[in-house]
Design a protein around this nucleic acid. Structure first.
Lengths: 189, 189, 189, 189
DNA sequence: GATGAATGAGCTTTCATTCAT
DNA sequence: GATGAATGAAAGCTCATTCAT
């Protein structure tokens, strides 16, 4: 078994357990069991439980940026690009529930404070640039990009959470309407 | 010291500790210390740590509903009523950071699963009714109230989080613009 | 069972185990077992294993100073007082092997560095004063008390170690000769 | 790199780490790192950590006997030979602090029990013979050589420890006086 | 009601040692 | 010979909870 495999196995085991039981109810011994490695092995790849959890966050953010922006085509109309962004976000997380739940748990826990504000901003740089340019070109409302991004992502995440909760099943047409709710709010009037 | 005082002291101590260190780093012994009671005393008021945390959540939700709706005047224009709701939400949480951080941490942790879906909905009933009626009277978009509420609250909370993060200071006029971003998205076009 | 009893039981259990197996082979779980307390109980009385070990050292030094000096009579001839000191030292340690072995292990381990030089000197203050005065009154050689004390205690401890090793059994008359070996070396010629 | 070099490197790394952190805080992985070899390599040269530590002790004792006795000239006056022995001992250890601290730590730890009494005596045979003959020729007091050696070495080591502690700096003339303290005690009166 | 010493299961982490390469 | 990833038993320590006072 190659190193790559074990590290991945540990990541996946930790992700699954955190989602199911939370940080404090996911002992390293269980992570080891689920990853099919010895407890000590985890400590070859990660200095501590905290570091493993933070590495999981970093890995996720990098993967998401890849997913959201790898096919973005700046020559197209912004509204269309933004719609694709919105749908990619929704689709990825509703199909990868664990990643979403982990993410929400992480960013609302004191673990985030492990990172400096600058580090955290770095992960969101692609989204920040995406929105900032659209404000600059007068496509979006003339308001701080930070505020706009917060509102966009906040409402999108809430929508994803609703879907994942099983409390309500969002149809495709409702998703398109939700996109419009967002778009009508942020576009320059 | 009256019973009331001790229970309140325990609530406040737990709230403060959770916000500062997270659930798993807030031992009951520390709660006792901060509340100036003996460790055993907590167990007169709450069956367990989990129960205490859940009771804290219930207390908070009830207080918030009181704050948000006690002065709501159904005879006024919905847009105005909604604006007040939006500002009350923002103002309360930006002035009571601990409550907000606890809330976000709680609802994104496996603790929420302590409650049945029905119980959780009960806490949000006032908001649900508030929005549902406005859809019914054709003031708001014709879309599931659950979706609309998710998006409204998601974006509002994200805004509050931005303000509390210290990363950006939202001015009064920006707050009014943010309200419009929200309103323009949800109002019936 | 009173607090005093448990703390004492922990002290004694730790002492015995360290002597038998060394610091690193005396797990807290064994200490707990030998002291008939729960593992966690040790941590009510001592913040950590290291602190327990250091407290053991402090306790020992205080007891020894009591033993060595409580009956010292400054009105007597110094040689006699010193002889009593010498014999008390030898007798106490040969009858309390564990204390001696712990002490030697402790002061030759990196644990001593827990204490500042000043703290360590404080424990030896009574002996220091005892010897310094005898140098001042021209009974002992005119040499730094630190040097004299080192040589006295070093040779006395080595003698005790010889006796405790079982390699050789020191008779009473040999002990008196050993005292003279010491005395003839340190007295003012 | 020759075998010799690696074994030496391992010895030196272990010595340094033990002195700095003690036996129980000197992991083999650190020894490997400091010696610039792989962890597994240590096990080609030594069966276990304990064996490595014991081998270190043996190596040291052999080196010391070489140093102390290689230039001893039995035709000279015993007092002079003993003085040289005394000064060699002091000089070597005050210039090789690590060796001294390791030695003291080792002989006061349960590790010594790895060796039989006979083995331990073998290492001290040269010193034993040196002193025994001087008693036999009536130069030294008529007392068991074991007692005499214990007292000599005990006081000498205590002196070295004083110097190494940095607590007091022993001058050359004080060292000569210390030698006389020793000599006046042991010489036949 | 209130206390806080005591519990002990269970946590994170370490580290001597092995073995496939 | 040499490597260092992998092991897993065992360490130090924490903390929710209990119960005699």
């Amino acid at each position: 078994m190659k190193e790559f495999d074990k590290k991945e196995a540990i990541f996946n085991a930790m992700l699954e357990l955190i989602v199911k039981h939370g940080f404090h109810a996911s002992p390293m011994s269980d992570v080891a069991k689920h990853a099919n490695v010895a407890a000590g092995t985890i400590y070859h790849y990660f200095k501590s439980k905290d570091e493993l959890i933070c590495a999981l966050y970093v890995r996720h953010k990098e993967q998401m940026n890849e997913i959201l922006f790898k096919n973005d085509d700046p020559s197209r109309l912004f509204k269309d690009r933004f719609r694709i962004f919105y749908l990619l976000l929704f689709n990825h997380y509703t199909k990868n529930k664990n990643e979403f739940i982990f993410l929400e748990q992480f960013i609302n826990s004191p673990f985030v404070n492990t990172f400096s504000r600058a580090d955290l901003q770095k992960f969101d740089q692609p989204t920040y640039d995406f929105i900032r340019k659209a404000i600059f070109t007068q496509v979006l409302r003339d308001i701080s990009p930070k505020i706009l991004i917060s509102m966009i992502m906040g409402s999108a995440h809430a929508l994803i959470k609703l879907q994942l909760s099983g409390e309500y099943n969002i149809s495709l047409s409702e998703l398109e309407t939700a996109f419009l709710v967002c778009w009508d709010g942020i576009k320059r009037p």
